[in-house]
């Protein structure tokens, strides 16, 4: 009953919407990073669902693998930037750090 493409696409759509909402409404930079992770997960879920139901080969799974790799690199660099921001400004709230110069 639930084992079809639409169910997985709807789950990943809801994940995507929640990620966008986290990016738009949160002020803490680390929460925004969590929203980005939700969006990357939803994209990976889409790739794997299409690979299972629609394409019949494994290319979608390889794309999802590269998405996981890019997410790891992105999270490491982003957190290093946030630590540097916190060291300079004593805050990670993005609305208090909206200017490049102090």
């Amino acid at each position: 009953m639930f084992n079809n493409l639409q169910v997985f696409l709807i789950i990943s759509t809801i994940l995507f919407i929640l990620g966008i909402l986290a990016i738009l409404t949160r002020k803490n930079a680390i929460s925004i990073l969590m929203g980005i992770e939700l969006i990357l997960n939803s994209a990976g879920l889409n790739f794997v669902a299409f690979s299972k139901f629609s394409s019949g080969n494994l290319n979608g799974q390889i794309f999802a693998l590269f998405i996981i790799l890019l997410a790891a690199a992105e999270a490491a660099v982003a957190l290093a930037i946030f630590l540097g921001l916190y060291r300079q400004r004593k805050t990670v709230f993005v609305d208090q750090a909206s200017e490049l110069k102090q």
């Binding site: 493409l5 709807i10 690979s51 019949g56």
Partner: peptide
């Protein structure tokens, strides 16, 4: 998603 006719080609 609900009203599109997706191609089916199972893995």
């Amino acid at each position: 998603i609900l009203f599109t006719n997706w191609p089916i080609n199972l893995l």
